[in-house]
Every structure is written in structure tokens, then in C-alpha cells.
Design a protein around this nucleic acid. Structure first.
Lengths: 322, 322
DNA sequence: CTGTTAGCGCGTTCAT
DNA sequence: ATGAACGCGCTAACAG
């Protein structure tokens, strides 16, 4: 068939016109299965994530949109494929069966069996996040070190000397979830660098847990004047606990929510100062990485670490006089 | 090849064993493209939704999980396919090109061009929600009539006589978004039935909009003692406005959030009484509908309308004495 | 119950 | 610059 028309070799202008006309008239559509079979390539990228990863939150939406767009511009479809955590094999088989050409893996932990399976089968993939071991792996991630450093600096510059950090759950820490581990370490390092009295705690992803946690911190360290939170759900509890104690934000206590969005910050009163999760950038970059791996292009040395920018709200202010 | 083994016809126990052994040893995987080509069926169901439909919210997660599971049990993959609103043709072409066998369409409006395109091309689909016209269309939806009736009844039973309803945006009403239209109408009908003084307003999907809207209602109708909200984001503003005016929940004013989840309700203080969006049920039912259409099975007459159950919180109570 | 065979609709290579 | 032929790896239909 004259189907090389679809871009493969030089074509006569007139011939092309004839073909295009025929295509219109017959309402012709290229068959994806036949193309995939012949070309040995599905032109599908799979975005796999744990089932209901906190319910496909706002950040995911932004990420997926950017990734989707980038993929489309390159002639690929991005499809979101939810899997339970235990289904390592299924993730790998998506590619081995030719359903997808490559995989974007979200919510990776420091030791992630899905990644082991992918590596063992030589399946092309890019991680959103990082395993502990990195060589030979393609990834993009939030720069937690930089983000937490900036967060601590912001508060230290405002005169705060005792800062608490409300992290993700203990479970996520125990299972080696990268963001939890990295953020904790970075917070500590930044606090030491600025001579800050630091408290860090984990909290389950619920407002109630955040409230209890915050309450406990205030009991133990009443001199705490600032909270950095990296737990969207628990943050609701943090502000509740402050309200319970008649502590005003930001006059008595400052709250800085990191790796979230101003939109979420706007749900509070006053609106939270946030450090925005760079979902868009991560989405674009991760697809670029994966495509480079797929097409054998040299994995261009672009930044793999993306930072969260400070988005001023009304929840951080100068430390109160004592 | 003896591949009918994979379920198509009776097989000798021993033959089966031999084949299975060979499969293990060679690490064999069936090729999806070849299967699709030969069988003229991709075994993929596409869940299409507008790009960043409010950021793939919590309800979507629940829906997707259930749909995904149901599809898998039937030997299908459910893949989430984000599209911009304007890309009607692309949605249709997914199936025409054989990328997917059928489509689940989310966020359908009363007059939805995507649906028109699907109908014109005879593509199998099921709507999550309903167009105005329904015949020959497969759908499942939330029972807004019932939900709003239950909501009004709940509050009326508590003695409230003036109730305000905070709906989705004016834009969604203007563009004929089913839930917005149906909920408004149902609220009115229910209020009339119970002799309630009803106010209904639309609000943009932001806390600020919810706050201003609520404030305006309280100015105009200070006798309002209860709010029904169907706008997750704006509801944050509703409670802020009440707090601004020193109105206590539920002593002075009751708040009932419908078509949301107790988890979201828990982000409030006190926790909101909610009517839970039946994401799980909708996900399961919608895939069942679509599969019935695909496999030519008689579209079994199961309920297409699913109701939201009341989940008690602490934000509704008896109407205050005047 | 089991072995064999003919396409499915494209990409690709080989002629022209 | 174009047409023709082959085969991607399977399913389904047909013999045995």
C-alpha cells in the first residue's frame, strides 16, 4: 500500500492529494493494533500509580495533563493505569505484552519492587521520585533538599527560632517512601545550618491525626512559633489545633505548607503560604526522559530535580516577641 | 498453535500442562497487538474525562478503582484517557482506531458533543451522568432528585424552615451540566414539598466565591438556618463566612454537604455531615453497562440511578429557637 | 479433543 | 517516486 505516505518516504504532491481524498471519502482510520504489530511499537506510555494514591489528587491532575500533552506532541498516548502495590508483575507485563512501550512509575519508594521487576525485564521506564539506588535508572523528582532548605530559610529570616515539621505518615517513613525520608533529613540539615530548634514528627494523612500531633507538639514545646507541613490532609488538623488554643495565624504561629498548591492553600482562612509542587514541570520532564530512553536518544542532561517555588499567602509572618 | 488453550475450547489436562510448562520456560507473553488484530478487539476500555476535571478528585479515585477492578475481572484493562473538551473527534477515534473497544464518558453535560460524535460513529459507550436525550444511550448517574430530597428532608425534620442551596458554578448551569441543573430543580421541588423557604445560588469552585456567596445570602435572608452545599471547594468558604459572623455550627446554622465524602467532611471542624458520592457503585455499574453493550448481552435492567447515603457528622442539628 | 491454516491491517523491504 | 510482496504474532475456522 501507498501507506508510506504517512511520513516515511518522499511523495509526489499529487499522489498525496489523491490519497488524502480517498481517506476522507472512505472515512478511513489506521488500525492501531495492526500498526503496533507491524511496527513493534504501541505508541502508548503507561503512567502507573498505586490504586487511589490518596485519590488522584490535585497535583496528579496537573502532572497528568502536562505529561499527556508532552506525549501527544511526540505522537504517543499517555494512559493512566492504576495498580495495586502488590502487582509488580502486571506493571512489567504491560510492556512485555506490548500494551505500552514504556512506563512512568509514580509514588516510588526507596526500595520499590516494581522497579526491580522493570529492571529485570529490561523494560524502559522513568520514575517520578527516586529509589535509593539510581544508576542506570531514569528519573525526575522534586528537590526536597532545596525545598525544605528554602522553607526553613523563609521562616528563619522572619525570626523564628523554634520550628516544627509535620511530615507524612510513620508508615511511609518505615516503608522508605522517598519524599518522607528526604524531607525529614533536609529539614534537619537546614535547621542545623540556621541554628534552629527543630522538632519533626510524622502524622497520618487525616485532619484528626494532624490535630493531635500538633497539640502534642505545643504541649511539649510551647515555644514553637512556626510549622512546616508536608501533608495536605493533616494540615487541616494543624490549623484546627492552633484555633483550639486560640493561637492566631500568623500573629502567634506561622504555617508554611510545602509540596502543595496555592489552590489548596486558599481553602484556609487566612490563605496559607505554600511552596507549590511543580506538577507541570515534572510531567513534562518525565515524559521527555522516557522518550529519550525509548528512542535511544542520548538522555539529554536536563535537570532531573525540580524545586517548589514559594507562593506567598497570609499564614507566615514575623516571629512574635516573647 | 495450540493457543486456543487460553480459554477458548475444551482441553486435555495433560496437554494443558505441557503448554504451561513451555510458557514458563520460554518466558512467553501473548502479544497484545497481535491479539487485538486477530480478534478485532483490544480488550481496553477508555475512561475519558476532561483534562484536569477539577484535578481528578477524590471521588474520581474511588470511581476509577471500582471501574478498573470490574473491568479486570472481565478480562479488560481500564485506562484513563484525559482529553480537552474540544477534542470530540479524538474520543471517538480511540475506538475507530481500535485503541479501545468502548468508552466511559465522564462529566457529561446535557448536550455533549462528545456523545454526538460517539453516536454518529456507532461507538459503544456509557455515560457517567446523563445527556438530556437518553434513548439508545447507556448511562449510570447519581440520583440527584433523591439525594436533594433526602437532604431537604433531613433538615426539615430538624425543624429548619429556611434553607439555602449552594450549587456548582453559574457557568456549569449555563452550559447545561446535568448535576447542576438536576440538583437545582430537585432542591426546589423538595423545598416546595416541605413548605421550606428556599434560596438557591451558584458559586464558583473556590473558597472565596463560597464565602462571598454565603455572606450575601446571610445579608439578604438572615433567617437562613441551614445550608445544603454541592460544591466541595466552595464549601470551605461557606464555613468561613459563618465563622466570620460568629455563627456556630451546628448550633446557629446547619451545614449539609452533598455528593462528597465523609473524608472531605473530616477536614472541617466540626466534621461535616455529608451525603456520600457513590463513586464505587457508579464505577462498577458503568463498566457492567458498557460490557453488556460490547458483548451484546442484554443490558440487564439494573438500577442506573445510584443514591448518596447520609453520613452523619456534627454539622447539622435542630433549628435554633428564634 | 487436537493439529493445521488463513487472514487480521499495517510497516517494511525489494523491485521497478 | 511508486507498486508489490512479505510477515509481525496471534485468533478462529476448518479438518482430523
Amino acid at each position: 500500500m501507498s501507506y508510506a505516505l504517512s511520513g516515511a518516504r518522499p511523495i509526489g504532491t499529487e499522489t498525496r492529494a489523491r490519497v488524502m481524498a480517498a481517506i476522507k471519502e472512505l472515512g478511513f482510520e489506521r488500525n492501531a493494533a495492526a500498526r503496533s504489530l507491524a511496527a513493534r511499537r504501541s505508541h502508548v506510555l503507561a503512567l502507573v500509580l498505586p490504586t487511589v494514591a490518596g485519590g488522584l489528587s490535585g497535583t496528579l491532575g496537573e502532572f497528568a495533563q502536562a505529561a499527556s500533552q508532552t506525549a501527544r506532541d511526540a505522537g504517543y498516548h499517555l494512559v493512566i493505569w492504576p495498580f495495586d502495590r502488590e502487582e509488580h508483575a502486571e506493571v512489567r507485563d504491560l510492556v512485555r505484552q506490548g500494551q505500552a512501550d514504556g512506563v512512568l512509575v509514580m509514588e516510588v519508594s526507596l526500595h520499590d519492587e516494581r522497579i526491580d521487576a522493570l529492571l529485570a525485564s529490561q523494560v524502559p521506564f522513568t520514575m517520578i521520585g527516586r529509589t535509593a539506588e539510581l544508576d542506570g535508572r531514569s528519573w525526575v523528582d522534586i528537590d526536597f533538599e532545596r525545598t525544605l532548605t528554602d522553607a526553613v530559610d523563609h521562616l528563619a529570616d522572619l525570626g523564628h527560632t523554634t520550628i516544627a515539621f509535620v511530615n507524612h505518615s510513620q508508615h511511609s517513613l518505615d516503608t522508605g517512601y522517598g519524599p518522607t525520608v528526604r524531607a525529614r533529613d533536609a529539614f534537619h540539615a537546614a535547621a542545623v545550618a540556621r541554628g534552629i530548634h527543630a522538632t519533626d514528627v510524622t502524622s497520618d494523612e487525616s485532619p484528626l491525626a494532624g490535630r493531635l500531633t500538633t497539640s502534642a507538639i505545643l504541649d511539649e514545646r510551647p515555644e514553637t512559633t512556626a510549622f512546616v507541613t508536608m501533608n495536605e490532609t493533616a494540615t487541616f488538623g494543624v490549623t484546627q489545633a492552633l484555633r483550639d488554643r486560640r493561637l492566631r495565624v500568623p500573629d502567634d504561629v506561622s504555617v508554611l505548607a510545602v509540596v502543595t498548591s496555592p489552590e489548596v492553600g486558599a481553602m484556609y482562612h487566612p490563605p496559607l503560604t505554600t511552596m507549590r509542587a511543580p506538577g507541570h514541570e515534572l510531567g513534562r520532564r518525565s515524559v521527555e526522559e522516557l522518550l529519550a530512553a525509548l528512542e535511544g536518544t542520548a538522555p539529554r542532561e536536563a535537570p532531573r530535580l525540580v524545586t517548589c517555588a514559594l507562593s506567598p499567602g497570609a499564614s507566615t509572618g514575623p516571629a512574635p516577641r516573647r
